[in-house]
Amino acid sequence: MVLLSIIADFRIIFDRDPAARNWLEVLFCYPGLQAILLHRIAHRIHNLGLPLVPRLISHVARFFTGIEIHPGAKIGTGVFIDHGMGVVIGETAEVGDYSLIYQGVTLGGTGKESGKRHPTLGKNVVVGAGAKVLGNLNIGNNVRIGAGSVVLRDVPSDCTVVGIPGRIVYQSGVRVNPLEHGNLPDSEAKVIRLLLDRIDALEQQVQALQEDKLKEQELVASRVPNSEYNDPHSCYLKDKEIEEFLGGTM
């Protein structure tokens, strides 16, 4: 079973990474593969209940690859960690088969509670660079999490999550390339654009009202004797009357 998982881990790299050219390069130059291979060894020792050794293997893997996977984490078949620097996978995290994880991803816990405190990822999940999935969450199958997103709630299958905190964007009936984790809808930019359009419309209304008011003032000024509206120091009749009452002290 472990051998089959290792073979699947090896083969998936050629499917997911166009830069993979030959098996020697993949075996010796892909830290994601190396970290997962060492984790599978550490995980089996961890399940046997031996102390220290699995954590030591995990620590060595982190030193050489920059990827930290707790020995207790469950990693499915054909999981690919691309580049991988800064990836952290917690003790009770579970990663489904054929998931794709980019650099800087954290599958972490919140608080100091015991038991299940890290996320569970379904199959074929894509977690973009720098994304954080925090807490005992359930992420469904075929979910895409955009780069830099922070996911704090459960996500059903076949959804896309973007933003801080992560918001769900459905893409029904659309097939997407799992490598295009940066080609995601920008809901924040859409909202900002709508707000800018609304502000522009309001500014046009205010300008139109000001022009109408100016025309009304000019019409009144043309009919008022002594041209009170033409006084550069007072725009309104009431201002003129107040100034006269105060003896020109305004």
Rank of each mutant, 00 (worst) to 15 (best):
L3C: 05
L3S: 13
I6Y: 03
I6E: 06
I7S: 11
A8C: 10
F10A: 04
F10R: 06
R11N: 14
R11C: 04
I13D: 02
R16P: 04
R16F: 05
P18Q: 10
N22H: 14
E25Q: 15
L27P: 07
L27S: 15
F28Y: 03
Y30P: 05
Y30W: 15
P31S: 02
G32D: 04
Q34S: 12
A35P: 01
I36K: 02
I36T: 02
L38H: 09
L38N: 06
H43V: 00
R44T: 10
I45A: 01
N47C: 10
L48G: 12
L50G: 05
L50Y: 07
L50K: 04
P51M: 11
L52M: 12
V53W: 00
L56V: 14
I57W: 05
S58I: 02
R62P: 04
F63C: 11
F64R: 09
I69S: 04
I69W: 02
H70Y: 10
P71Q: 07
P71I: 08
G76C: 02
G78N: 00
V79T: 09
F80A: 00
D82S: 06
M85H: 13
V87I: 13
V88R: 11
E91W: 12
T92G: 13
A93N: 05
E94D: 10
V95G: 02
V95E: 01
V95I: 15
G96E: 02
D97M: 10
D97L: 07
L100E: 07
I101G: 01
Q103A: 15
Q103E: 14
G104D: 13
T106G: 10
G111I: 12
E113F: 07
S114Q: 06
S114P: 01
G115D: 00
G115V: 04
H118S: 05
T120A: 10
K123Q: 11
K123E: 08
A131C: 08
V133A: 08
L134M: 11
G135M: 02
L137I: 06
N138W: 01
V143L: 10
R144Q: 14
G146I: 01
A147E: 06
V150Y: 00
V150T: 14
V151D: 08
L152F: 04
P156W: 15
T160D: 06
P165T: 06
P165F: 02
I168G: 03
Q171P: 05
S172A: 14
G173K: 03
G173F: 07
G173Q: 08
V174W: 01
L179E: 04
N183A: 15
N183G: 07
P185W: 11
D186N: 15
S187L: 14
S187I: 15
S187F: 06
A189P: 06
K190E: 11
R193P: 02
L196M: 12
I199R: 13
I199F: 10
E203W: 04
Q204T: 07
Q205G: 04
E211Q: 14
D212T: 08
K213V: 10
K215I: 11
K215V: 09
E216K: 13
V220D: 08
R223P: 00
N226V: 08
Y229F: 13
P232C: 10
E241M: 13
E244D: 06
E244V: 06
L246R: 14
L246N: 13
G247S: 03
G248T: 11
M250Y: 12
